[in-house]
Design a protein around this nucleic acid. Structure first.
Length: 140
RNA sequence: CCAGACGGCCGGAUGGUCGCUCUCCGGCGCCGCCCUCGGCGGCGUCCGGGGGGAGGAAAGUCCGGGCUCCACGGAAACACGGUGCCGGGUAACGCCCGGCGGGGGCGACCCUAGGGAAAGUGCCACAGAAAGCAAACCGCCGCCCCGCGGCAACGCCGGGCGGUAAGGGUGAAAGGGUGCGGUAAGAGCGCACCGCGCAUGCCGGCAACGGCUGCGGCACGGUAAACCCCACCGGGAGCAAGACCAAGUAGGGACGGCCGGUCGGCGCCGCCUUCGGGCGGUGCGCGACGAGCCCGUUUCCGGGCUGCCGUCCGGGUCGGUCGCGCGAGGCGUCCGGCAACGGACGUCCCAGAGGAAUGACCAUCCAUGGGGGGCAACCCCCGGGACAGAACCCGGCUUACAGGCCGUCUGGCGAU
C-alpha cells in the first residue's frame, strides 16, 4: 500500500482528536494526536487535519500558515506517521515566519514526543524525559 | 533642471524538485445494460499525458441591479426611509460626464449636503445696554434747572428732558460698504460707485444661469446634516435564497383546568315507522359560517392561522446533487459624441473550492536599503519584496497599499 495520508474534514473528527488530550507544542506549531479505536480503520494510513484560527491573522496569513503546515506534513508524515492514527496540526503566531527547516524539526520532535508519551499512563510523568520543563508543566 | 497639478497603467520575472483543484484524452480495475468477437454507460484514496487556476482593491458590506422565495389580487391616504442646482450617460443608482452658482490658489487646478427661511414653530450659548422687538452702556449734540467763575459772550461740575447707530466696547453675527455733501450732532438724509431686492422688460443659453436696462434708498439676520414644507423615488427577506435526491420521521402525543353562538356531519340512547326514514335527547374541538388574531395603520377588501392556559413525553435540523459560471463579458479596429458613453465588425472562452484548491522549498535575475573596494563603468558582502485571498453574479462608492512607469499641463531658473 502506498504511504498516502488521509485528510480530516469533519468537525466531529477534530473534536475527537482534541478530546484525546495528547498534544505537544513546538515554537512553530502545535500537534494533537489520537489513535483510532474502531477496528475497521485501525490498519489504514494516518490522517491529518489543519487548523488556523483568526487569532494568528487575516485570511492571507491563515492560508499561508495552513499551506506551510501541509507542506511539512506531506514531507514527514508518510514515513513518521503511524498507521491508524489521526493528527491535527494547529498554526501558531510563529508558523509563517519560522524557517522551513526549523518547522520540519518542530514536527519531527513533536511526533517523537507524542510517540514517547503513548505507552505511559496519562497521569504519570515520563521516566526518561530529557527536557523536563515542558513535560513537567503539562503533567499536573 | 527645480517645484507642482491632473489623468492613465503596473503591482516582481525565469528555471528546477515535490504537491493541490477543475476539466479533457488514453490506459487499468470493478459494476450494470445491450447481449455472445464486441459496444455503451457509470464508478475509482489507481496510472500516464494535455489544458485552465485570485485582486485592483478579491476587503468594508455603504448604495444600485440581476436571480430566488414570500407578500404578489389591488387601490387610496397616512406613516416610515432616501434623494435634492441644470443638462446628459446608464439596466439602475446616492454613480459617472459636461456645465452653472459659491469658495480657495500667482497658476495648472482643487473643494462644494448647492430646493424652500415674505406657510408656520423652535433655537441663537458666553459676552454684551441691546440677538429679531430693534436697542442708548461709554460717547457726541441740543434745550432746561441748580451751583461756581466771569462786566458779558460763555466755560466748568451735577441733574433732568430729548436727538443721534458716525466712533469706543461685546460678539460668529449689531439692520449694507467706501467717498463727498449735509447736519446741533448724526443718519441712504441726498449724490456717485460697488453690493442687495424687484421687473410686465430686452439679449444669450434646451436649462441651471449670465449680461444689459429700468425701478426701489434698502423695507424681510443666521440656522432646514432643528422640526418642517415642496418635488421625486422606494414591498420584504436573502445563495444559510431556493430546487431535487437519499434516509426517515414528523408536521405531534398524553394529562388536568376553563370556555364553547348557529348550522351540518358522525356515534350512542329512546320513541314512531308505510322499513326509505323521521322526531327528541345526549356526546364528539370533524366541517362550514360567525368570532378572534396576524399580514405597518385605516377603509373597501384579499389571504393565512386558531379552542385557550399549564405540566410532561417524543421527533426533526449536521449527507449528496443542482443553483454555479456565455456575462449589462474581455480584447482589437473603425464610426458618432467635448466627454461619460453608444454603435458596427472581428476575435477570445477566461477560477469554481466547500476544515475551503490556485502552493512549499531552492537557485539566478530585477527593483530597493546599508557597508566596503575602485578615478570611473562596475564588483563584493549583508538585509530584503506593499496592501491583501474569490465563497451566487454584475455596476459603483469608500477604505488599505512598498515601489515603479507613461502622458498632458502650470510656475520659476538657465540656454538657444
Amino acid at each position: 500500500m502506498p504511504p498516502a495520508v488521509g485528510r480530516l474534514t469533519q468537525r466531529s473528527e477534530f473534536l475527537r482528536v482534541a478530546a484525546a488530550r495528547r498534544k505537544w507544542a513546538a515554537p512553530g506549531l502545535v500537534l494533537q494526536a489520537c489513535e483510532r479505536t474502531d477496528d475497521a480503520t485501525a490498519a489504514e494510513p494516518p490522517r491529518v487535519g489543519f487548523t488556523a484560527t483568526r487569532k494568528i491573522g487575516g485570511a492571507v496569513v491563515r492560508n499561508r500558515a495552513r499551506r506551510r503546515l501541509r507542506a511539512v506534513a506531506a514531507q514527514l508524515l508518510p514515513s513518521l506517521g503511524r498507521a491508524g492514527w489521526d493528527y491535527v496540526l494547529i498554526a501558531r503566531d510563529g508558523t509563517v515566519e519560522r524557517p522551513f527547516g526549523a518547522l520540519l524539526g518542530d514536527l519531527e520532535t513533536a511526533l517523537a514526543r507524542v510517540e514517547r508519551r503513548r505507552p505511559v499512563a496519562p497521569d504519570a510523568p515520563p521516566p526518561d524525559a530529557p527536557t523536563p520543563p515542558a513535560a513537567a508543566a503539562d503533567a499536573p
